[in-house]
Measured scan of single mutants.
Amino acid sequence: DKHFVVALYDYTAMNDRDLQMLKGEKLQVLKGTGDWWLARSLVTGREGYVPSNFVARVE
Protein backbone atom coordinates (compact mmCIF):
# COMPACT_ATOMS: atom_id res chain seq x y z
CA ASP A 1 0.00 0.00 0.00
CA LYS A 2 1.76 3.11 -1.25
CA HIS A 3 1.37 6.33 0.62
CA PHE A 4 2.14 9.74 -0.72
CA VAL A 5 2.76 13.12 0.87
CA VAL A 6 3.37 16.67 -0.28
CA ALA A 7 6.03 18.97 1.17
CA LEU A 8 4.52 21.83 3.19
CA TYR A 9 7.84 23.70 3.38
CA ASP A 10 11.24 23.77 1.73
CA TYR A 11 13.70 21.52 3.54
CA THR A 12 17.47 21.72 3.15
CA ALA A 13 19.31 18.45 3.77
CA MET A 14 21.51 18.60 6.88
CA ASN A 15 23.54 15.51 5.94
CA ASP A 16 23.79 12.92 3.16
CA ARG A 17 20.98 10.80 4.65
CA ASP A 18 18.41 13.60 4.39
CA LEU A 19 16.32 14.37 1.33
CA GLN A 20 16.23 17.97 0.19
CA MET A 21 12.73 18.97 -0.92
CA LEU A 22 10.85 22.03 -2.08
CA LYS A 23 7.40 23.17 -0.94
CA GLY A 24 4.76 21.43 -3.08
CA GLU A 25 7.02 18.52 -4.05
CA LYS A 26 5.29 15.13 -3.99
CA LEU A 27 6.98 12.22 -2.23
CA GLN A 28 6.33 8.52 -1.75
CA VAL A 29 6.81 7.45 1.88
CA LEU A 30 8.90 4.27 2.09
CA LYS A 31 9.00 4.09 5.89
CA GLY A 32 6.78 6.40 7.91
CA THR A 33 7.41 6.00 11.63
CA GLY A 34 8.70 8.47 14.19
CA ASP A 35 9.81 12.03 13.51
CA TRP A 36 11.86 11.23 10.39
CA TRP A 37 10.36 9.45 7.41
CA LEU A 38 12.23 7.72 4.62
CA ALA A 39 10.81 9.05 1.37
CA ARG A 40 11.44 9.09 -2.39
CA SER A 41 10.89 12.27 -4.37
CA LEU A 42 8.54 11.80 -7.33
CA VAL A 43 10.33 14.79 -8.93
CA THR A 44 14.01 13.85 -8.57
CA GLY A 45 13.75 10.11 -7.79
CA ARG A 46 16.17 10.53 -4.87
CA GLU A 47 15.61 8.91 -1.48
CA GLY A 48 16.33 10.16 2.01
CA TYR A 49 14.89 11.19 5.35
CA VAL A 50 12.50 14.11 5.78
CA PRO A 51 10.99 15.57 8.97
CA SER A 52 7.45 14.19 9.25
CA ASN A 53 6.06 17.56 10.36
CA PHE A 54 7.18 19.09 7.04
CA VAL A 55 4.83 16.91 4.95
CA ALA A 56 1.09 16.22 4.66
CA ARG A 57 -0.69 13.12 3.37
CA VAL A 58 -2.15 13.19 -0.12
CA GLU A 59 -5.32 11.12 -0.54
Rank of each mutant, 00 (worst) to 15 (best):
S52M: 12
L30F: 00
V29K: 02
D1V: 07
L22K: 13
T12A: 12
F54R: 12
S52T: 06
K23Y: 04
D1C: 09
L42D: 05
D1I: 05
A56C: 10
V58R: 08
T33H: 13
L19Y: 00
E59C: 06
F4P: 01
Y11Q: 08
R57E: 15
M14S: 15
F54L: 14
F54I: 11
L27P: 01
V55K: 00
G34H: 05
G32Y: 10
V55H: 00
K26V: 08
M21R: 01
Q28V: 10
T44R: 04
R46D: 09
K2L: 08
M14F: 08
G34L: 01
V58D: 10
K2Q: 13
Y9S: 14
V43S: 14
L22H: 15
R17S: 14
V55E: 02
V43N: 13
A13P: 15
A13T: 15
W36K: 14
L42A: 07
T12I: 14
W36I: 14
E59Q: 14
L8A: 07
N15Q: 10
K26Q: 12
W36G: 09
V5M: 15
L19G: 01
K26S: 11
L27H: 03
E25P: 01
N53H: 13
A7G: 05
V43W: 11
Y49G: 00
D1F: 08
N53S: 12
G34I: 03
L27R: 00
E59L: 04
T33E: 15
D16A: 14
K31R: 12
K26G: 05
Y9A: 15
Q28F: 07
D10E: 06
L30W: 04
D10W: 01
D18H: 14
A13D: 04
H3D: 14
K2W: 08
V55Y: 00
R46F: 07
L38A: 02
G48Y: 06
M21F: 12
V6Y: 12
V58Y: 10
E25S: 02
G45S: 07
E47P: 01
E47D: 06
R40H: 04
G34D: 07
N53W: 09
E59H: 09
L8P: 04
G32H: 11
N53G: 10
N53V: 06
W37Q: 06
F4M: 12
M21Y: 00
A39T: 08
R46L: 10
H3W: 10
W37C: 11
Q20R: 11
V6I: 12
M14N: 15
A39K: 03
R57T: 14
L38C: 05
W36E: 11
W37A: 08
V6R: 11
N53P: 08
G45A: 04
E25K: 00
T44Y: 08
L27A: 04
V6A: 06
R57Q: 12
H3R: 08
G32N: 12
R57D: 15
L30D: 01
D35I: 04
F4Q: 10
A39Q: 00
A13R: 08
F54T: 09
T33I: 10
W37E: 03
D35N: 11
V6W: 07
K31W: 05
R40W: 01
H3M: 13
V5C: 05
G48F: 04
K31I: 11
V58G: 09
D16V: 09
K2H: 13
V55S: 02
W36M: 15
L42H: 04
F4S: 05
R17P: 04
Q20A: 14
D35F: 15
W37D: 00
G34M: 00
D10V: 02
R17T: 12
R46P: 00
E59K: 08
L22F: 09
W36D: 10
S52K: 15
W37S: 08
G24L: 00
V6C: 08
V58L: 12
P51V: 04
G34T: 08
D16P: 14
E25L: 03
E47V: 12
F4R: 06
A7R: 01
T33F: 07
L19M: 11
S52C: 11
Y9F: 14
G45P: 04
S41Y: 01
D16E: 13
Y11D: 00
R17I: 06
L8V: 07
M14T: 15
M14Y: 15
R46S: 10
T44E: 03
L38D: 02
Y9C: 15
V55N: 00
T12D: 13
F54G: 12
L30C: 04
G48M: 04
V43E: 15
R17D: 12
A7W: 02
E47T: 14
Q28W: 03
G24I: 06
Q28R: 08
D16F: 08
D10N: 13
L8W: 00
D35W: 07
Q28N: 01
L27D: 03
G24D: 03
V6P: 02
E25G: 03
V58T: 14
R57P: 15
R40F: 00
E47A: 08
K2T: 11
R46C: 11
H3C: 12
L38I: 06
